[in-house]
Write a protein that binds this DNA or RNA. Structure first.
Lengths: 105, 105
DNA sequence: CATATTTATGTCAAATGTGACATGATTAGA
DNA sequence: TCTAATCATGTCACATTTGACATAAATATG
């Protein structure tokens, strides 16, 4: 079962789609959001693979559980920088990150 | 002519290499720097391909010439977010960005 | 060579991102 | 069910990033 871009964005609480123009998102803004979401997904996946709690990951990257939750939720308040730094801390390399960014897993 | 990682970092003024440990950079920090540099290179390349001055690009992305210069120099004061947003504004897509990040052109 | 255009570098106030905390919601195990 | 662990969400002081400005250095153009 493969979700459309719209569905994926809606799932993440972005309400794009039927209300796409309502939010007035430029194509570039949409791409940024999608990149953030892709990285979020990878982060959550990698953390679970390593069987870490958000709390434990937070400690590893000297952050907090709440920020990890926001990262994984693709919250607009988290930068792509932080997502990338977290992925690297979990052992991902540039190729992994590039793969995540290139999208659609 | 292919530069080594060390040379590429030195060119960008990071003085890693012979003084690698002097700067006490963790592998993750080095990767982040390399990612920033890769994106910088892509940005400069793409801007030149489009025959735009830094001033003109700055206007397109509602920024300033000085910040564009810093972006292209891989200055530590610029976020990966900004680099990615600028690349998108120049017409790059996620694949292009992923390619740049995956490194060694 | 002038001098005009472009690019580099330093600084700073305003904007944005961050960790930490509190606390609510969800899930897991008895 | 209880209840303990994990995850989600809101808030805020503090930190980092940002556009803008000034100005120097480099590069083109005559």
């Amino acid at each position: 079962m493969k979700l459309t871009k719209r569905q994926r964005l809606e799932v993440a609480g972005w309400k794009v789609g039927t209300t796409a123009d309502f939010l007035q998102l430029s194509p570039e803004e949409v791409e940024i959001i999608e990149i953030r979401l892709s990285l979020s997904k990878s982060l959550k996946q990698l953390r679970k693979d390593k069987e870490l709690s958000q709390q434990e990951l937070a400690k590893d990257i000297s952050s907090s559980q709440s920020r990890v939750a926001k990262m994984e939720a693709g919250d607009p308040s988290v930068s792509i920088d932080l997502l990338i730094r977290s992925l690297l801390a979990l052992g991902a390399d540039r190729k992994d990150i590039a793969l995540a960014i290139s999208g659609d897993l």
